[in-house]
Design a protein around this nucleic acid. Structure first.
Length: 474
DNA sequence: TTTTGAGTTGTTCGA
DNA sequence: GTCGAACAACTCAAA
């Protein structure tokens, strides 16, 4: 039933033209539907560098989305400005009755949306939002007592129990595609006009847009059955690499969940589990927004981290002397990506070995990860720092050498990112400082000269971390 | 209300 | 080298 003469769909982190909740809702309710994307100055102006892979990823994805919408009779208005002014202005110019968007769960985005809603309301334009980027949101999966879960496993069990094909159905956008309106022809801003330079995303294994996601998903489908066995080895192509596409919505989470749901393999189930984690952290952020800046368990805000700036700089600069940690940090520094296992190793090392506040690490990852997502990043860091819901117990401290031997047994990943150590055999590459001077010479590396000696002693650092955490629990 | 079982991803120590 | 216990008690969720 038609409710509106015309509507505007505001794209944010949902850069696709299929299985799109807000687009479908708008098309279903309106005679004509315009589409718009905003390069938001509130976000872009805060970015420190002139090259930012995320902006570039978005730009390419937007270019593709625009073309896709145009090929079905519609179009995409692309603007550069502040959302609080620009969206109401655009809505007024187009004389729409409603603006549609998909839910965003981050506190800053929610504040922005409330402001936009007020401004639109003042012009008698309604602002309608939809669930799109998760399978179950906010209050859809609750305990029997009607409270949000704070422990993952019972949450996941309830999540899986509720999961039915109905919730995974794609929104059939095509059904109403003749209602897509062609907006007045305008040029899309160039990357340079936004103040950013082009790099080589594809060279980093980061193909943008719906087509990039399609390619990665297609390749992953044949590996999905092995996911549970291969996902922990950074030197293998075990994961989907779709995180950045989930971040910007160039793939639909329903489509991914459907792919896993329809397959009974252990790999598919393990992967589905990861999608449940994603929902879990969005839900946690919604119900417990204090996790932004504070420990989920507030008593852990009392932890007094020494925060040695030199050690933090060594971690950032991949000069800790622990090969797997340094390889991980070079991976994020060079590519904007870090393998999930390594995120845990690097996080544990920063907090439990270098005794640096988890928020420093969280901020660093936020600035460097292409797939950075507030909810998941915060959840992961709090888990590693033992301050979160379902936290790793405080005495569970990753040993960076053991992790290296377990998950990069041949040292292939280390060799790729720390070529100084390429000449080490697979035994000594995990702890190269243990080599005799002669072995070092044969391996072509002198510890302390070509590659740093360990900045801390793990055994001693571990004991100190135990003390640090003990003082809070007393 | 009380009880019970369980809790992402680990490490170390000593037998 | 392999194995089990200890790490420490607490909170959550469900029965």
């Amino acid at each position: 039933m038609l409710q509106f003469d015309s509507a505007l769909v505001w794209f944010r982190r949902d850069l696709r033209n299929y299985d799109h909740a807000a687009l479908y809702a708008a098309l279903k309710a309106s005679r004509r539907v315009f589409c718009a994307f905003l390069f938001d100055t509130e976000i872009l102006d805060k970015l420190p560098a002139a090259t930012d892979r995320r902006v570039e990823f978005i730009w390419h994805s937007i270019a593709e989305l625009k073309q896709a919408l145009e090929s079905t009779g519609g179009g995409l208005l692309v603007r550069h400005g502040g959302a609080r002014d620009e969206i109401p202005r655009l809505a007024a110019q187009l004389k729409v009755d409603a603006v549609y968007a998909n839910h965003d769960y981050e506190p800053a985005a929610m504040a922005r949306d409330r402001a936009v809603e007020r401004a639109l309301g003042a012009q008698n334009i309604v602002f309608l939002t939809c669930k799109d980027q998760v399978i179950f949101e906010k209050d859809e999966v609750l305990t029997q007592g009607g409270r949000p879960y704070t422990v993952f496993t019972p949450y996941r069990n309830a999540w899986l129990k509720k999961l039915e094909p109905f919730f995974l159905k794609p929104y059939p956008v095509d059904k109403y595609r003749e209602r897509l309106a062609r907006p007045p022809a305008t040029k899309m801003p160039t990357l340079a006009s936004l103040g950013f330079q082009q790099t080589d995303l594809t060279g980093l294994g980061l193909p943008a847009g719906m087509s990039g996601a399609r390619m990665l998903l297609g390749a992953f489908m044949s590996r999905m059955t092995q996911y549970h066995e291969q996902r922990d080895y950074p030197d293998l192509e075990g994961t989907s690499r779709l995180s950045v596409h989930l971040r910007f919505g160039t793939v639909s989470v329903r489509e991914l969940a459907r792919a896993a749901y329809l397959e009974a393999s252990c790999g598919a189930q393990a992967w589905l589990n990861e999608l449940a984690w994603r929902d879990f952290y969005f839900m946690i952020l919604h119900h417990y927004p204090h996790v932004v800046g504070h420990a989920f368990r507030r008593e852990y805000d009392a932890l007094e981290f020494p925060n040695n700036k030199k050690l933090f700089a060594a971690w950032c600069g991949a000069r800790t002397g622990y090969p797997l940690v340094d390889a991980a940090m070079r991976q994020i520094n060079q590519t904007g990506y870090m393998h999930n296992r390594l995120r845990m190793v690097a996080a544990s090392f920063l907090v439990k070995d270098l005794h640096v506040d988890w928020r420093w690490g969280e901020r660093y990852f936020a600035g460097h990860l292409n797939d950075f997502d507030l909810a998941a990043n915060n959840g992961g860091w709090q888990w590693a720092a033992s301050t979160g819901c379902d936290a790793q117990p405080y005495f569970r401290i990753f040993n960076p050498v053991t992790q290296s031997q377990k998950f990069d047994p041949q040292g292939g990943f280390i060799r790729k990112y720390v070529p100084e150590l390429a000449g080490c055999d697979e035994k000594s590459i995990h702890a190269p400082w243990l080599m005799t001077p002669e072995q070092q010479k044969n391996a072509g590396v002198i510890i302390g000269r070509n590659y740093p000696a360990p900045v801390v002693d793990h055994a001693a650092a571990r004991l100190r971390a135990l003390e640090l955490y003990k003082s809070v629990r007393r």
